[in-house]
Amino acid sequence: MSQGIYMETSSYLHRLNPVTKFVLVIPTTLILTLVVDIAVPALFSLFFLLALLVLGRIPPSRLARALLPFLPAGIGLLWTTAAFYQTRMAEAPAVALDLGPLQLTRAGIIYAVSIVLRVLAIYTSSLLFLLTTHPTDFILALVQQCRLPVRLGYGVMAAYRFVPLLSTELAQIRAAHRVRGVPEGGGALAAPRRLLGYAIPLLASGIRRAQQVAVAMDARALGAQRRRTFYRHLRFSGSDLAFLLAYAVFAVVVLSLLVWMGLPARLDPFGGPAMRR
C-alpha cells in the first residue's frame, strides 16, 4: 500500500495501535470547536508537535515539511475570517487595521487568529496519526479491533495494490491510442479530452481486475469462517492506555486552567448567537 507521508521508523508512537491514534482526533476536534480561544488550540498544537518530536522521533525538518501546506490555507483563512467577521453589538467596532476597502476590527482579528489556531491544532492531531501509522496497519487494526468485515478490509487493500500498476497501464493505453492514430490534438479542449480518453480505459481495466480478484477471493472462501487467524496480530496494550490517559490528563488540565483563569471561552459550537443589527 502506498505510504504517502508516513515516516518509516521505530518509536513509541509507531508501536501504538492505529485505532488509538485515530480516535484522538475526534475528542480534539470536538473540544476545539466548542472553545473560541487562542491559548487552548495553541497548547493542543504544542502537545501534538512535542509528542511527534519526542515520542514519534520525527526529525524537526520532516515535521516542518509536513506542516508547510498549512501555510497558504492558514493565511487564506486568517484574512477572510477577519474580513467577514460580524461585529457584535457589545463590542466596539474599532477599526484596528485599515487597508483601504478592507477594514479589520480588533475583535475580528482575534477571532480569526483563534480559528486559524483551531484548524492548526486539529491538523497536528491528524498529522500525529498520519506520520506514524502505515496505511495497511490501519486497515488491519480496523479488521482486528473494530470488527470491520474481512472481505471489506482485504478488498480495499487488494484494490489499493492496483495503484502501482497504473503507470505501466497508462503507457499501454498511450501506445494503443498512437497505434490507432488517435490525434494528440491541439486547442483548449484537447488536454481535458485526452485526460478523459486515458481515464476511462484505466478505470475500465481497474474494474475488470477488481472483479477477477473478487472471484479469486470467493474461490478461497475469504470471510466464510467466523474466526480467522492473522499473520500479524495488532492489539491494544498498556502503552495505548498510557497515551490515552496522558492525553486525557492534558485535556482536563488545559480546560480547567482555562476556567480558572477566566479566559474568554464560551460553549460556542456554531460561532454563537451573534447579535446582528
Partner: peptide, 13 residues
C-alpha cells in the same frame, strides 16, 4: 465480493 471490490476500486481511483 465483486460489488465490494468494484466500489473499493472506484473509491481509490
Amino acid at each position: 465480493t465483486a460489488e465490494i471490490l468494484v466500489v473499493a476500486t472506484m473509491g481509490i481511483a
